[in-house]
């Protein structure tokens, strides 16, 4: 029996996945605190408890995400790029492109037939297209970020948001509210703007079908829908898109044991 764990320390949430012989035995998602070392340990413990596995039985741990460098007990540190690729390859080996929209960064990853990273591209400094952008906009609109997906799907059309600079876009959103545009339409407009940005990144890297999406924003059906419209293809979203990075990390830990 091989037991390995993957920890994904993102800017907003920390994810832990424990796998036993290639099957997920436990997984948790927690809010990231300031003390990432502590949160990493707590997340790992929680996932192990869920799986009913003791610490001493763990054969390998891989840490990923922004906080990966601050996990002293991890055996390896791997970037989220390789981890998301590995996680998706495990679920759907035929997937050629992974889109991951996280809190800080969004990325488009191209996989080769063996699930290895062939190329990747990440968001530009000035561009909005991240979870953080949506969060800032949700605050301007006084809605809960989790509700945005459902709200936007109810809108018949999207308000046009032209600027993609966070500051410009925020002022545009405020103007739209002042003009009396329904909030749902504004949110749909924001989703379309994010989707356009990410679709542009995907084109830069030369995306191919099939496409899968991971990361917290993948839970927002509004963004996924807009992205599908922009790319003109269906996008696969795993049941728990947030944990794919951690899953990939756990799988990489297992790979290194072979």
């Amino acid at each position: 029996m091989t037991v390995t764990a993957g920890l994904d320390l993102g800017s907003l949430t920390t994810k832990a996945v424990v796998i036993r012989d290639g099957v997920i035995a436990g997984s948790v998602v927690m809010k990231s605190g300031v003390q990432s070392e502590d949160i990493a340990w707590r997340a790992l413990k929680a996932a192990l408890d869920q799986a009913g596995i003791g610490e001493e039985q763990v054969d390998g741990i891989v840490a990923t995400g922004y906080g990966r460098v601050r996990v002293p007990f991890a055996h390896h540190k791997v970037t989220e790029i390789t981890c998301h690729a590995r996680g998706i390859y495990h679920l759907w080996p035929e997937v050629a492109t992974v889109i991951d929209i996280g809190g800080q960064d969004s990325k488009v990853i191209l996989l080769d037939r063996g699930g290895k990273v062939r190329d990747f591209v990440m968001n530009e400094k000035c561009a909005a297209g991240t979870g953080r952008f949506l969060e800032v906009m949700a605050r301007s609109l006084e809605v809960n970020v989790e509700e945005m997906g459902e709200l936007s799907l109810a809108a018949p059309r999207g308000a046009s948001i032209s600027s993609m600079c966070t500051v410009f876009a925020e002022s545009e959103v405020v103007s739209l509210v002042a003009e009396g545009r329904p909030v749902a339409e504004i949110i749909r407009g924001l989703h379309e703007a994010v989707a356009q940005r990410v679709a542009a990144m995907a084109s830069r890297v030369g995306w191919e079908e099939p496409v899968a999406m991971t990361g917290g924003v993948a839970k927002n059906r509004g963004v996924v829908k807009s992205l599908e419209d922009n790319l003109g293809t269906a996008i696969r979203v795993p049941p728990d898109p947030q944990i794919i990075g951690a899953l990939g990390a756990a799988l990489l830990a297992a790979d290194s044991k072979k």
């Binding site: 948001i161 032209s162 600027s163 703007a193 940005r197 542009a200």
Partner: peptide
């Protein structure tokens, strides 16, 4: 044209 430029952004950088 009016509006943003998602397709051109593919070929020319943001700034």
């Amino acid at each position: 044209r009016e509006g943003n430029t998602p397709r051109a952004d593919t070929y020319l950088v943001g700034n």
